[in-house]
């Protein structure tokens, strides 16, 4: 599998021989390498979404539906139009800042989304990419992802309906819904753009590559008598990945498929895209250089 990745990387380096912005090289780190070209972003105009909160919710000790909250975005959200590609990720690997992604069976082209990457890999890429571009790039939060996904946002579509006397009712219903959702799996990653743009112009959301977010897994008790601060247990060793349905994955997991005993619908593939915080002006950039 390392061979496989190396091949993609070599291809990428050869293909993406982009002009290097001289001013950026110095602070790009000790390993001067190719600097990625300007990545296409989509600016999503400020707005509000109804956002079903991620996490596991308990009411009176039993699983409950996630409550929704209205989330307002006051500023435009700048998000990559495409998922991070193998080629782009490969540059980070070449620079020594990212670990090679796990290979998958046959898709070797550079213009397919990188898959076989963990949350930790995605974070490493964001750090390297920010350093390389002089901009602030990071994973979107689950709410930001939902905002960008627009009509493609699914959240957790599975029922939580429950029989208070019989927890198995919920287990079996969920199992059957997840099985139905996976009826025709096509896990082979497709070329960028394969699943087309949503109404915002963001491409490939909710295709067969799930995307890491910066939102931690949490368990929330909705019991009214509890103090607010006693209600939530957050575990940042597990992050939310969004896609055709919401899933929670340990930070180091690169292949959601290896589920085996665990009952549940794993993501076909794990990848990511980044959001850019408002581009810093020349002054902020100068400050960054001086650091």
């Amino acid at each position: 599998m390392p061979h496989h990745v190396a091949e993609a990387v070599i291809g990428a380096v050869a293909a993406v021989a982009l002009p290097v912005a001289i001013g950026l090289v110095d602070w790009a780190g000790s390993t001067p390498g190719p600097v990625p070209g300007a990545v296409e972003t989509v600016a999503i105009a400020p707005g509000t979404i109804e956002f079903p909160l991620p996490g596991e919710f308990l009411a009176d000790g039993r699983p409950a539906a996630a409550p929704s909250r209205s989330v307002r975005f006051d500023r435009p959200l700048h998000i990559m139009a495409d998922q991070v590609s193998r080629a782009a990720y490969g540059e980070c690997v070449t620079a020594g800042a990212c670990r090679p992604a796990d290979g998958t069976n046959s898709a070797r082209a550079a213009d397919i989304p990188v898959t076989g990457v963990s949350y930790l890999d995605a974070e490493a890429y964001a750090v390297w990419y920010s350093r390389t571009t002089g901009e602030t790039w990071r994973l979107p939060s689950a709410a930001e992802w939902a905002f960008a996904a627009g009509e493609r946002f699914a959240g957790d579509p599975f029922a939580v309906a429950d029989d208070p006397k019989n927890p198995a009712v919920a287990w079996i219903r969920r199992y059957e819904e997840e099985a139905a959702a996976r009826r025709e799996p096509d896990p082979q990653p497709k070329p960028l753009g394969h699943y087309g743009p949503n109404t915002h112009g963001v491409r490939d959301m909710a295709g067969n590559v799930w995307e890491w977010t910066s939102t931690c897994y949490s368990r929330v008790r909705l019991d009214s008598e509890l103090e607010t601060n006693a209600r939530t247990t957050e575990n940042c060793g597990v992050h939310v990945a969004e896609g055709r349905h919401r899933t929670y994955m340990s930070d180091f997991v690169r292949d959601g498929k290896s589920g085996g005993c665990a009952v549940g619908a794993p993501p076909d593939n794990l990848g990511f895209r980044l959001v850019r915080d408002d581009a810093p002006g020349w002054f902020a950039r100068l400050k960054a250089l001086a650091r």
């Binding site: 019989n166 927890p167 198995a168 009712v169 287990w171 079996i172 199992y175 059957e176 290896s258 589920g259 085996g260 005993c261 009952v263």
Partner: peptide, 26 residues
């Protein structure tokens, strides 16, 4: 009732190599 996993309890074989089946019991 519930969803039972029926596995080869070499769990590496069950999870990584595929030896897992499920029973759905009402």
């Amino acid at each position: 009732p519930g969803v039972y996993a029926y596995v080869n309890h070499n769990l590496i074989e069950a999870v990584e190599l595929g030896a897992t089946a499920h029973f759905v019991v009402d």
